[in-house]
Amino acid sequence: MTTSEILATTQALLQGLGTVITLFVVVMVASLPLGFLLTMLARCRIAPIRWLVNAYIYIMRGTPLMLQLFFIYYGLPFVNDFFKMALRSAMVCALLGFSLNYAAYFAEIFRGGLLSVDKGQYEACQVLGLNRVQTTLYAVLPQMFRVALPSITNESITLVKDTALVFSISIMEVLYYAKAAVSRTGSILPYAIAFLIYLALNSLLQLFFNWLEKKTAY
């Protein structure tokens, strides 16, 4: 390939970057709080809620994300007209599927973080007069988050790479444009370009999380 061809191909691949970034940002913003909510509900005093949440996490983590996307995109619209309308856009399905899936993983990460918070912290809060909500907000959450951070970093890097899955429900992203470029040019160089694009994205992400880890260290 000539330099100008490489440049043009890179440009073509970068058209898929918007999809990757949108997916990443929305899914992180939606699944982190949702995951935390699940963690909390899994500790709920009402047993059926615990069972439901644990079943949810079990299913979401135990099945391939691609099948879940299939289910939402191709299956749910047949259930009723509401789903048919709401899930018209493939991107909505992708955002929903990814968020629901990643929330389950984050819930498990947060659970691990919670387990790492010393029992003494709860006792200290109690004798200082903090109520349950205050204890959670000001003592438990920050410590849990700090412990969970490396795992969150790991998951978010996986998320960037997982976005390539959305092509299974017909959304164009970097890897798909790379495939198209490969079949157009007959060279596998576009794969190398995609490789670099993903690597660059994740390098930025890694830098951000390194900074965050340093900032929240204690």
Partner: peptide
């Protein structure tokens, strides 16, 4: 109450360890 293992809040400065409970409670 004072515990054997202190149970300070590790993520808060000494100042915030003292002021946070007072301000919240």
């Amino acid at each position: 109450m004072v515990f054997q293992n202190f149970h300070l809040f590790p993520h808060l400065s000494v100042r915030r360890n003292l002021t946070m409970p007072l301000m919240k409670v």
